[in-house]
């Protein structure tokens, strides 16, 4: 389950890397905004579907703010500048959340009274199942969209070469916000799914998941959507296996060790990039 959340965060990251070659460190913050807004709206008495809508809206809006101040202003600046600004946005979002909602761990009410199905001895939690299905469906829709639509073609042109794209009449300033919008939505939705499943949120919840999401993206291959998903699942499996074999304390060593190993040996990731990825 955690694997599919990592995968969604990784997809959000990989869109930005693949198309814009921009490692967007604010995505863990957007994840948190999704989760926290869902909690805050539920506490405020909104029905669950409105709460989810509000969370997605907040994530998308925040992502557009990030676009405005990182990528658009600083195109052509030094390589690290947008990265640094996006880190600053992560700090900004986290501490604004602390100011608004405090830093304690908040608990969400269970959404459905009896949310478990029992089928032949297996206990399946409905929110988990819905989350899993929703994330797979969305990612599938995204890859279809990238392959088939006019927008997808525009994105792939920018991924190849943004200057050429400009010459070909692709309107970068219209398309790039869409990239941020989609990745913001994915991050926020991952946050919502996380919140509904684990029923706990706090302002720094994005860091752990976000860092694992970055790892998933690299393991799978930057810029490749399906690679990110595979990476997310691999990270999830490695976590479970290292808990099983070495104990819970070694999870991070195993995950980040794998990440470091892959970066040094095969920096393009395990799976070749589906589009872009010429940065290697």
């Amino acid at each position: 389950m955690l694997g599919s959340i990592y995968a969604m965060v990784a997809v959000a990251l990989t869109l930005s890397i693949g198309v814009l070659r921009f490692l967007n460190f604010s995505i863990p913050g957007l994840f948190m905004i999704g989760g926290m807004t869902a909690w805050a709206s539920l506490r405020g008495g909104l029905p669950w579907w409105l709460a989810i809508g509000a969370a997605l809206l907040a994530g998308a809006f925040a992502s557009l703010v990030v676009e405005r101040f990182t990528w658009r202003w600083m195109r052509g600046a030094q390589e690290f500048v947008p990265l640094v600004s996006s880190m600053a946005f992560l700090l900004l979002f986290e501490h604004l959340a602390v100011i608004c909602w405090g830093s304690e761990l908040r608990t969400l009410p269970p959404l459905f009274a009896n949310a478990d199905w029992r089928i032949a001895g297996l206990v399946i939690s409905v929110p988990q199942l819905v989350g899993l299905v929703a994330s797979i469906a969305l990612i599938w829709a995204l890859t279809l969209g990238l392959a088939r639509t006019r927008l997808g073609r525009g994105l792939r042109t920018i991924a190849e070469d943004s200057d050429t794209a400009l010459l070909l009449g692709v309107e970068i300033n219209h398309i790039v916000p869409v990239v941020f919008l989609i990745s913001g939505l994915f991050a926020a939705l991952a946050g919502v799914i996380f919140a509904l499943n684990y029923r706990q949120v706090q302002p720094f919840m994005g860091e752990m998941v976000g860092l694992k999401g970055i790892s998933a993206m690299i393991v799978g291959g930057m810029g490749s959507v399906w690679g990110s998903i595979a990476g997310g699942l691999i990270i999830g499996v490695v976590e479970v296996m290292s808990i099983g074999y070495f104990g819970a304390d070694f999870v991070d060593i195993a995950v980040y060790g794998l990440l470091l190993l892959i970066l040094c040996v095969r920096p393009t990731g395990l799976f070749a990039a589906a589009f872009a990825g010429q940065r290697a």
Binding site: I17, R21, L23, E79, F80, L83, L211, I214, S215, I218, D249, F250, V251, D252, I253, Y256, G257, L259, L260, L263, C264, P267, R279
Partner: peptide, 24 residues
């Protein structure tokens, strides 16, 4: 051996590993 953004990520992983090792 890595460069640019990959170097940033490799050092990031390194920092996480050091932290995890010390925790253990």
């Amino acid at each position: 051996r890595t460069r640019g953004i990959y170097l940033a990520l490799a050092t990031f992983a390194l920092g996480q590993i050091v932290q995890a090792i010390i925790l253990n």
